[in-house]
Amino acid sequence: MTSNQWATLVSRKYVPWDAAGVEKIPPHEEEDMKAVIAQINEMQQRQYNKTRHCYGGTHARTQGIVKGRFVVPGDLPSHLKQSELFKEAGEYPVACRYSSEPGDPGLDDRIPQPRGFAMKIFNVNGEMFDAGQDYPTQDIEFNSTPAIELADTKTTREILDIRLMCGGDERELRDQLKKRSDYELQVSRDQVPNKHLESMRWYSQSAYRFGNYVMKYRLVPSTETQRKLAEETVKPENSDDILHLWLQNFHTTHDAEFLFEVQLLENLEEQPVEYAGTIWDEKKYPWQPVAELVIHKQDSWSYSRKAFWEDHIRLDPWHGLIALQPLGSSNRLRRVLYPASSALRRKMNARQEINIKTIGEIPG
């Protein structure tokens, strides 16, 4: 950005993270949370009955796992030097997992669905939440769509109830969703571009504290090679694991680079925090770069890495800095849902959850 552009962004009035109205806990949210935990556990049980292995309620299909560097520059303007992670220049080891968002580990890659990306950043120093205070990591998760149809806890409970009732009957599912006022949002997940994972933009969907302010964040591919891959879409004649194969081929032969950008809260009416089904207008509220993710050439498909991550690691946005606190209904749900989902997986798979402290503990 030019100095004039930065000057304009520095002077804008950003909403403080603890301002009145940023978070509004609705009645019965705790009851809805308990119901969602039971629903996700039932979905996990159904998958276990098919595969005799328990997976997470979402993001069950691993597409690849890589290691890289998260680089924070030292010349950020004052309004972006937020939290211990972005306050000064730094370079951090990072482990990243690509996934498909649904909870079916056998989902055919030729079926268009949201995809996932997650980062575990190591050697992060600062005041941590209790759940991760003994582990110097910042967990960050992304989705390939900028808004999430499970937009708050109440909506999540209602939609999961419909999905469980309909099972695998897509026609019945559509009929039930048509009765809802948010039908277009609910079916948008089935209409996403099905393309090369390395060409995708990755979004937080929900809001997070950003030091003094509130942000959404995203990753944007920043090499010409990655951008050109957006033209490579999945076709019916491709294999059912084509996304994993494309990803492996790319990482074996190319470096990858992404810009990590934040979008700051300025208007609660137009940028709701409690409801994560609304896209924040990027023309009114521009994205601002604060870091870079660099992934050098490597094999993205390691059996040992995949097994270790799926069986032992829990990536959780509540494992990290207090200054980057997850905000809003969907994130409050994650705070109780993720540990419950993980506990069932460890019990049914007879595996121990391992909260790693260094990137070297991840094999491969």
Rank of each mutant, 00 (worst) to 15 (best):
residue 85 L to E: 00
residue 87 K to V: 07
residue 155 T to N: 13
residue 234 V to M: 03
residue 333 L to K: 08
residue 357 K to E: 15
residue 215 M to K: 05
residue 310 E to P: 00
residue 155 T to V: 12
residue 6 W to A: 08
residue 125 N to F: 03
residue 231 E to W: 06
residue 263 Q to I: 11
residue 84 E to K: 10
residue 143 N to D: 01
residue 218 R to C: 08
residue 356 I to N: 13
residue 5 Q to H: 06
residue 37 I to R: 12
residue 27 P to N: 04
residue 105 P to E: 07
residue 275 Y to V: 11
residue 269 E to Q: 09
residue 32 D to T: 02
residue 250 F to H: 06
residue 27 P to G: 13
residue 1 M to G: 03
residue 58 T to P: 05
residue 78 S to P: 00
residue 354 I to P: 01
residue 189 R to W: 09
residue 361 E to C: 13
residue 95 A to S: 15
residue 172 E to M: 12
residue 196 H to R: 07
residue 327 L to M: 08
residue 177 L to C: 15
residue 301 W to H: 08
residue 194 N to P: 14
residue 296 H to C: 10
residue 318 W to E: 02
residue 350 A to S: 08
residue 158 E to D: 10
residue 12 R to H: 15
residue 102 P to D: 04
residue 312 H to E: 12
residue 89 A to F: 09
residue 182 D to E: 07
residue 34 K to E: 04
residue 55 Y to V: 14
residue 113 Q to A: 07
residue 263 Q to M: 09
residue 11 S to A: 00
residue 60 A to W: 07
residue 230 A to M: 08
residue 44 Q to P: 12
residue 199 S to A: 07
residue 223 T to G: 05
residue 309 W to T: 04
residue 244 H to K: 14
residue 21 G to S: 09
residue 222 S to Y: 05
residue 347 K to F: 01
residue 15 V to Q: 15
residue 248 Q to G: 06
residue 312 H to V: 11
residue 130 D to M: 14
residue 175 D to M: 05
residue 8 T to F: 00
residue 142 F to H: 05
residue 340 A to L: 02
residue 59 H to L: 15
residue 3 S to M: 06
residue 345 R to Y: 13
residue 112 P to W: 06
residue 230 A to H: 12
residue 52 R to V: 08
residue 92 Y to V: 11
residue 347 K to R: 02
residue 211 G to D: 13
residue 171 R to C: 04
residue 188 S to E: 07
residue 231 E to T: 13
residue 19 A to Y: 04
residue 52 R to P: 00
